[in-house]
Write a protein that binds this DNA or RNA. Structure first.
Length: 600
RNA sequence: CGGGACGUAGCUCAGCCUGGUAGAGCACUUGGUUUGGGACCAAGACGUCGCAGGUUCGAAUCCUGUCGUCCCGACCA
């Protein structure tokens, strides 16, 4: 018997990307798990699959998109002068204790133990690690400024993962950290990142606009979030169309309520009146009391870092907890329980007030909207009774006035006086000026020109790469599927011969056009599946390739092929021009996007 | 952490109320017919009905617990 002949296949340097070999498990039906359209399309287009709540596997096409976004981020970070590093995701808890975030971030921090019983944390960000590096390695002002970044997997113990990649337990993120010798230097570093972020999102083909943001538990004093407008977003953005003001609702301010606060002096003393069963602002506005909400004082009992405090707001205003934390410096705040209210003021929620029986140990905060308020009605600190004729500055001990209220749509912009609008948005990026919070705690100091030792002035800058992928889908889709911007599409062109038989003219032509496009640097997928045309058309539109070329025998007989930009009408073009037209189309799209980002 | 809903084939779901040993469509395999917008015919394969207890002669179905998934809430006194 003859020995079997060993056939060694030649490895092609760049094998033809055929749909049949690409693993694109598209779904006709909407997965039951997915609520929002971008999440549905991620699954339906075969980009990701769920492993468990908040944990996703990226499939080949999904990885291609992720890598494209990542490449844009990396290019622009490099352009901005940042230096790429790679830090461990597994980190010792000691540095988290040193920064204080072992406590303040404990709700989102994954912890685990190794076989020796030693504890570790999984990194949600890396301020502690990079500051440790800075403490050891940055010794002189001559080494500053410097900006380190990394791109990798981060972990957050989300209490409620949702919306696919939007809020996940594990996600892909770019995080950067700048170190400067001076405050002005830090502002310049911040500005560089701010500009880079604008370029990054423009190059991803989405509209993301910067808004003023609260800094939250991470600390610092100057911050912007980059927001993608979307009804499915988890943030409310307040903005003024004419003046350009835009802020996260946690931070936003206005000239105040459109309904003026009552200030007519009555001269009458506070008077108790019976309000049996009335425990809401709403109930007191009804007959027989008929006290409008804006003439009521809402008294909130809060526990801020285990201290009981009172916050007074106008009855029609909402407390903004982010502002409460910012104004009081508290790290954790929560509403007091009914029992705690009883203990503090002697009454149940619904009858609380600050006029009487407020122990001196309880600090009283009041919202600016209440300044000068007279003729107000508030709880009497006696169940079933309220007080009328209250003048806040005469009758209530206010320890601190500040802005604690949540801005409402229609209120006047501070700068222009124009009415503010509110819309939902997805946060895809965040830039902070951190100051010296971490450098002081972790001893990242340098020797200045004058020989003095100073803590580095830091900034930190994040982009949710996986979340950005989903935000792109949320903004770029129609009823048929995704419409990828060319810059992030898994492939730029989908070649679709309708007859794929070996030697069929459509197949032969598709292969030769594939070679020409690939040689010109275009990213092409060849749909070689022996499927009916409808299946191939639906799939390519679901996945969302920016440009498709249909090669059918009927039009080919007339010397034509069909150019189908995603979301636009078909154009018939001569066969001989096909490759050149496609190359021109793709290059024009690439250039258009780069120009819009100002990096042409 | 509180509330709600749901866990049945790879996917979307029916069956559960009224207990009697599991179904449809899509997808998959084989053969045939089709071939420009998610084809048709025939045959086939695919299930510890989330898991664990309990009730019962008998449980996908009723009860208890548990795990998982999704949604709402965790400011509105």
């Amino acid at each position: 018997m003859a020995a079997p002949r060993l056939v060694v296949s030649r490895i092609h340097p760049r094998p033809v990307m055929r749909w049949s070999h690409c693993f694109v498990p598209t779904l006709k039906e909407v997965p039951a798990d997915a609520e929002i359209v971008s999440h549905q399309l991620l699954l339906r287009a075969g980009l990701v699959r769920k492993l468990a709540g908040g944990l996703y596997t990226f499939l080949p096409l999904g990885v291609r998109v992720l890598r494209k976004v990542e490449a844009i981020v990396r290019e622009e970070m490099n352009r901005a002068g940042a230096l790429e590093v790679l830090m461990p995701a597994l980190q010792p808890p000691e540095i988290w204790q040193a920064s204080g975030r072992y406590e303040t971030a404990r709700d989102v921090l994954f912890k685990l133990k190794d076989s020796a019983g030693r504890e570790w944390v999984l990194s949600p960000t890396a301020e502690e690690v990079i500051t440790t590096i800075a403490a050891a390695e940055l010794n002189s002002y001559r080494q500053l400024p410097v900006n380190f970044y990394q791109i990798g997997i981060k972990f957050r113990d989300e209490i409620r993962p949702r919306f696919g990649l939007m809020r996940a337990k594990e996600f892909y993120m770019k995080d950067a950290y700048s170190f400067d010798a001076t405050d002005e230097g830090a502002m310049a570093s911040y500005r560089k990142m701010y500009d880079a972020y604008n370029r990054i999102f423009a190059r991803c083909g989405i509209q993301a606009f910067p808004v003023e943001a609260d800094t939250g538990v991470i600390g610092g004093n100057y911050s912007h979030e980059f927001m993608v407008p979307a009804v499915t977003g988890e943030n409310d953005v307040v903005y003024c169309e004419t003046g350009g003001y835009a802020a996260n609702i946690e931070k936003a301010t206005s000239r105040g309520s459109v309904v003026p606060t009552p200030k007519g002096r009555t001269g009458e003393a506070p008077e108790s009146f019976a309000t049996p069963g009335v425990v809401t602002i709403e109930a007191l506005t009804a007959a027989p009391y008929s006290v409008p909400a804006h003439a009521q004082i809402k008294t909130l009992v809060y526990v801020a870092d285990s201290k009981t405090i009172l916050i007074l707001l106008r009855g029609d205003d909402q407390l903004n907890e982010a502002k409460l934390m910012a104004r009081t410096g508290a790290v954790q705040v929560r509403a007091a329980t009914a029992d705690e209210c009883q203990a503090a003021l002697g009454a149940r929620p619904g009858s609380l007030g600050a006029v009487a029986r407020v122990p001196a140990t309880i600090k009283v905060y009041a919202d600016e909207q209440l300044r000068g308020a007279q003729g107000m009605t508030t709880g009497a600190n006696e169940d079933g009774f309220h007080l009328r004729h209250v003048e806040i500055e005469r009758d209530i001990r206010v320890d601190q006035w500040a802005d604690f209220r949540t801005v409402k749509a229609g209120e006047a912009d501070v700068a222009t006086g124009e009415p503010l609008k509110i819309r939902r948005a997805i946060e895809v990026g965040h830039v902070f000026k951190l100051g010296t919070k971490y450098s002081e705690k972790l001893n990242a100091t340098f020797l200045a020109e004058n020989g003095q030792r100073h803590p580095c002035v830091m900034g930190c800058y994040g982009i949710g790469v996986t979340r950005t992928v989903q935000a792109i889908i949320e903004q770029c889709h129609d009823k048929d599927g995704i419409i990828w911007p060319t810059s992030v599409a898994p492939f730029e062109v989908c070649l679709t011969p309708l007859n794929v038989a070996e030697g069929a003219p459509t197949r032969v032509l598709a292969e030769s056009i594939y070679a020409e496009l690939t040689a010109a640097g275009i990213e092409v997928i060849l749909d070689d599946r022996d499927e009916r045309p409808g299946v191939k058309f639906k799939d390519s539109e679901l996945v969302g390739f920016p440009l498709r070329l249909n090669l059918g025998e009927k039009s080919l007989a007339k010397g034509e092929v069909e150019l189908k930009p995603r979301g636009q009408v078909v154009q018939m073009i001569p066969v001989a021009e096909a490759s050149a037209r496609i190359i021109a189309w793709v290059q024009a799209e690439r250039a258009r996007i780069r120009q819009s980002a100002g990096v042409a």
